[in-house]
Design a binder for these strands. Sequence first.
DNA 1: CTCCATAAGTTCATTGGCAATACAAATACC
DNA 2: GGTATTTGTATTGCCAATGAACTTATGGAG
Lengths: 386, 386
Amino acid sequence: MTSVSARVPARQQSIRASNLALAYRLVLDAPTPVSRAALAAATGMTRATAGALADALLAAGLVEEVAPPPASTAGRPATGLVPASAGWVGLGLEVNVDHLAACVVDLTGAVRHEVTLDGDQRGRKPGPVLADLAELANRVTEDLAAPSSPEAGPGTGLRIAGAAVAVPGLVRANGGRVLRAPNLGWQDVDVLAELTPRLPETPALAAVGNEADYAALAELAADRGLRDFLYVSGEIGVGAGIVFDRRLFTGSRGWAGEIGHVTVEPGGDACRCGARGCLETVAGLDALRAPAPDAASRAGRGLGRAIAAAVNLYDLDTVVLGGAYAQRADLEEFVRAALTEHVVSARWAPVAVRRSRLGGTAAAVGAATSVVHRIHADPAAWEARD
Amino acid sequence: MTSVSARVPARQQSIRASNLALAYRLVLDAPTPVSRAALAAATGMTRATAGALADALLAAGLVEEVAPPPASTAGRPATGLVPASAGWVGLGLEVNVDHLAACVVDLTGAVRHEVTLDGDQRGRKPGPVLADLAELANRVTEDLAAPSSPEAGPGTGLRIAGAAVAVPGLVRANGGRVLRAPNLGWQDVDVLAELTPRLPETPALAAVGNEADYAALAELAADRGLRDFLYVSGEIGVGAGIVFDRRLFTGSRGWAGEIGHVTVEPGGDACRCGARGCLETVAGLDALRAPAPDAASRAGRGLGRAIAAAVNLYDLDTVVLGGAYAQRADLEEFVRAALTEHVVSARWAPVAVRRSRLGGTAAAVGAATSVVHRIHADPAAWEARD
DNA sequence: CTCCATAAGTTCATTGGCAATACAAATACC
DNA sequence: GGTATTTGTATTGCCAATGAACTTATGGAG
């Protein structure tokens, strides 16, 4: 998920690909339909060029034309362009401690279909879990193929562009291999290899990623105002996704955001990881549910210190609390207080804190969104595939 | 220092600029002289294109041709290209607590000239300090202009491309304004506005940045093997520079890497910033020099926890200890132990820890290097300026 | 109701940069 | 000295963007 400056020269088609992505980005980000002329004006391209790129996006099925609004000014009315609501969609899958989920997100970012299967996955072997997940995924793709399914909505003909799988654990970047998912009891599981043969309807393009990272992407898609933020997911384990410049920051190996093992109580309780005083030992669900009377304040303060460390180190302006934290207004207050106290830049630029408004399947939605993002980022690659 | 995806369309000249930078990068990174044919082979460009770009770099004075090596194989011997040792250079300036420094770095990354002025700057007003710094800078530029100065070396005719100033404090990105430099006693100082009129020989291109960030750049330039690392500078304050994918990561506002105020002893000593238990209170120079018998171990453990937090959050593979820490082998051991204990990924990928081998003016060198990096990154912008 | 101003969108010749190919130059090996 | 081999250069064609002219579609003035 990290851009690597390729040692490949730019050719004429690179500039076209770049401009096509630029034009698409404007259509995607605009709150209202965009005309070809507006595209040209916003970018500095000529209307001729903007028109040609718009036609290419139309031909690829990535945008749609909408009827011009009632003309209020002189001149020929503009035909608007909006992201296509039919055509390519992303498939998002999620393995979590207490449920499995599959969902489909279209190019507009809308969730078109979602299926969850509740059930404790702890202690189950990866094989059966992934078999269940594949069945869920195939049910979703079959629903999409059904001629007049209610989920498909007005624009039928949704085609899966690719899939991504969210897992609560450490994933090797570019590998599709889960190194360690302690709360599932998994160790070194090749999710891609297990899953791919069981998903006949889904093209090869697939990725495996951390649950918190994908949930952060879902949050980004849901709130246009977000740009640089920390998403903290509180479950049995505590993970974080960092979004910088509207892109996921996963580190070179995909292991960034391991906030759960930041030390918040030196010499504190022993953690599963072998160290002492990790955030997880005071603010993981097991600790939060403990009968100790000060569990919540202890968790809140620890969480606040860890988040303040992340904000100090990354220079972020917003923190979103997700997972189980989304229900805990008390923790939010502790975090807000800790940021005011510990973040150096807070006096110039206060850090916003809020709880996620997304449901329990944010990671699945984010995984699907990540697939859609690939199309958004490089529409030229999707021109021929129709 | 952060790349912002500009909403500017790619033109034909963009592709040339991109390819020129690609060719230059290869020349810069190669351990031995590079031929035009090797350039073509490495990138996939045709020899014609590579040759044209090489000629452009030569004409701009950014590379030099060297005599072909004694031919060992059949075929026409290749004329090698190396980064130019004459021509454009970067000017780096540094304000620090106990010294001022100015230095010049050429396109090969070599330090061509360096001047320091020792003296306690604490409590002095910004005006006089910056006047002294400007005088230092002007002495350096005059030395360069002198026909046969020993510093200029064989390739005289060094021209200042721009300047950058390192300051131990919080700097607003793109502003040139120092918000707060507690150890200098500065608050809201417009360094660029103060300095620019006093530097008649230096072009307008100038930047102001954090001392630790620039020191990290110097470290990067000195060690080809570095790619993603944390540089921690221990002085009165404790700062960090983060380099990710060989680029400085400063956050969107330039305030990333504020490790000095990560909480390492909850409820600990009061810090200048108003909080308690900040890293600075246990591992800043004042604490290290304190007579307490456990000062070093306490500092080492606190430093280790803070660095482990940064490594967990950023997914880095190397830590460089700089500033006063560069002399402290004892601290290095504490940090190494803490990383082994607290970093989740350490069992798959151990984190390397080492002390900086650069001297006390690393920040000045890094500042000059940052100017050189601008030329390296966009050689096309420097074609006409001759 | 007609004409004109205005804005959107399209067509076509021109321009800049790279690819492909052919060609010239310089060396090792037989 | 001739041939193979590699480097470097010149020529032609292609692609995508530019700029200007042209067509289309609307509101408003007379």
